[in-house]
Design a protein around this nucleic acid. Structure first.
Length: 531
RNA sequence: GGCGGCGUAGCCAAGAGGCCUAAGGCGACGGUUUGCAAAACCGUUAUUCGCCGGUUCGAAUCCGGCCGCCGCCUCCA
């Protein structure tokens, strides 16, 4: 059985077959870069990242295109709003392109941390103005568009299929239109292809209709066509963009090319925070940087980027996902369980016996892989796929308990972690840094201060002074630091996460907060040490 | 008002007519291990799937009604 995907166009799960044998072209609506990416972006791009990863796992050669919207996205769809970037740029007193560049970098940085594989092509809308003008010309020539006073609109009445994706009836929409309609439009549903720019508009380009800028929907049609061809296998995006954005893309592309635009439309569902819709107006969105550093009032701690990723994969991409501190916390625990198991098996492998591989284990692992693939083939059921990874965790722990387990057997488990947990789900890393390993002197200094206590405690334990050793551990735990006693010594197990917070703050340029944090740590210990 | 979705254990979340006397994770509790913890391991934690009817030999899964929640139709990933 091959991969089945839910196609929004037909509202059914369909067997996925690419247009060209063995090759897949996928286009995903990327971010408008006017702010730091938030948890909603994470759900979106992790979902499509897993799709791309799984297609690769199945052996397809994938071309993944994801645009960067750095111009032309108006603040409302009545075509009367301002460009989002210009609004944001004015607020920050920067050139819109400087702002776009800054947030584009921020976006890639956060996506890297979420272990999203970078798209093969990340085209910028501003870099494709020429092509966009060409498409508008084509639409005018073919009679699908009309020019009014320096702006060009798409004439929806000329395109019979308008509404086929969102199943909207154009006439009903006319009756229920709540948006203030631009008087230039012939019909309220018509949408802008090119907008005339006022002289003081910062981002504008010359065109046959005068100076202006492209309509928002145009870029996706143009860039997908340029890099993937007139008909693409998969187009992904958020459910909220199904209408009007994707509907308009279809109209533009199919009117211009006369062929089907997209074969599979894949839409992921939305994100809420504590059960509430996440929105600018509600001022409740959590950026990824805040989630990774814990610097948000709704969060009780910092979360590992891959724990955030795991939470996203815990539910289906077409289900809505509610981010709450409790849910993140649970994901963090589960993520650590997987991570610790992978680390343990890798640590153990070189020392394990050379004997034969356990046939029964081989059989179990094979079944797990089958279950995993069956789940993923069923419209990317990552929830079940993740459960298979936990089955693998349980099996591996059992193997580790048995001192007779051979290197070969452990290796097979590790391979499965790599392929399923790493290649496909992206929550298992190739390598994990040693606890406490840092690249900053300051961190080493702080680390040393903690380790003094570990040493003192070790001495106390040697003397069987458990009252003192417990007091030290108890004290450290109030500073969010845990001492863990293992057969091979005592370690500051949670220090890693604790220091990450300091590191994050520093990295993000929040020097004051980082400094405050650092001083609290050091002062606490100086005080204790002075007693 | 129009269109669509959801309601499964304390929490998150799969399952979409019989393999379900319902995966997996988190949490909680009991046990093994440990000076005590932590981690790990073992076990327990929904006779029941919002409520009420119906279809069926059989329903969490299909149909109808009701209640509750949410999304889109206006910018959002």
């Amino acid at each position: 059985m091959g991969l089945k995907l839910y196609n929004s166009l037909t509202r059914r799960k369909e067997e996925f077959k690419p247009l060209k044998e063995g090759r897949v072209g996928i286009y995903v609506c990327g971010p408008t870069v006017y702010g730091h990416p938030h948890l909603g972006h994470a759900k979106s791009y992790v979902s499509f990242d897993v799709l791309v990863r799984y297609l690769c796992y199945l052996g397809y050669s994938v071309t993944y295109v994801q645009n960067i919207t750095d111009v032309g996205h108006l603040t409302d769809d009545a075509d009367e709003g301002e460009d989002k970037l210009i609004v944001a740029a004015r607020k920050e007193r920067k050139h819109p392109m400087a702002l776009a560049e800054y947030y584009t970098r921020s976006y890639f940085e956060d996506m890297d941390r979420l272990n999203c594989v970078r798209p093969d092509i990340s085209p910028r809308a501003s870099g494709h103005i020429v092509e966009q003008i060409e498409l508008v010309k084509t639409l005018l020539e073919k009679g699908y568009a009309y020019e009014v006073n320096g702006s060009v609109y798409f004439d929806v009445s000329k395109f019979d299929d308008y509404g086929k994706l969102s199943r909207r009836n154009v006439d009903e929409m006319l009756a229920g239109a709540r948006v203030e309609v631009s008087p230039e439009k012939r019909k309220p549903v018509d949408f802008a292809l090119w907008k005339k720019a006022e002289p003081n508009h910062i981002m504008q380009w010359p065109s046959p209709w005068g100076a202006g800028f492209p309509g928002w929907h145009l870029e996706c049609s143009v860039m997908s066509m340029k890099y993937l061809g007139k008909t693409i296998d998969i187009h992904g995006g958020g459910l909220e963009n199904q209408f009007p954005h994707h509907e308009c893309e279809i109209a533009q592309s199919e009117a211009a090319n006369g062929v089907q635009f997209v074969r599979f439309w894949i839409h992921h569902n939305m994100t809420t925070i504590d059960g509430q819709k996440m929105g600018k107006s509600l001022d409740n969105f959590i950026t990824l940087k805040q989630a990774f550093s814990g610097a948000h009032e709704r969060l009780t701690r910092s979360y590992d980027p891959l724990a955030v990723r795991q939470l996203i994969l815990n539910s289906h991409y077409r289900s809505p996902l509610d981010f709450s501190d409790a849910a993140l916390f649970a994901a963090q625990s589960g993520y650590q369980k997987i991570t610790e198991t992978v680390k343990a098996v890798r640590k153990r492998m070189p020392a394990a016996g050379k004997g034969q591989t356990d046939k029964e284990v081989v059989e179990q692992l094979k079944k797990m892989r089958e279950k995993f693939e069956t789940a993923m083939n069923d419209d990317l059921n990552t929830s079940v796929a993740l459960s298979v990874l936990f089955e693998l965790v349980r099996l591996t722990q059992k193997l580790l308990e048995d001192s007779n387990t051979t290197m070969g057997t452990l290796n097979l488990a590790d391979v499965l972690f790599d392929r399923l947990g790493g290649d496909v789900l992206g929550i298992v890393k190739d390598e994990y840094p040693q606890t406490g390993e840092t690249d900053e002197e300051m961190l080493d200094e702080v680390l040393d201060k903690f380790n003094i206590f570990v040493e003192i405690r070790s001495l106390a334990r040697e003397n069987k002074d458990f009252e003192l050793s417990d007091a030290i551990r108890g004290y450290l735990s109030t500073s969010a630091v845990m001492i863990e006693d293992r057969p091979d010594g005592s370690f500051l197990e949670d220090l890693d996460g604790f220091l990450k917070r300091y590191k994050d703050l520093k990295k993000r340029g929040r020097k004051e907060d980082a400094e405050k944090y650092k001083n609290i740590i050091i002062n606490k210990f100086a005080k204790w040490y002075g007693k």
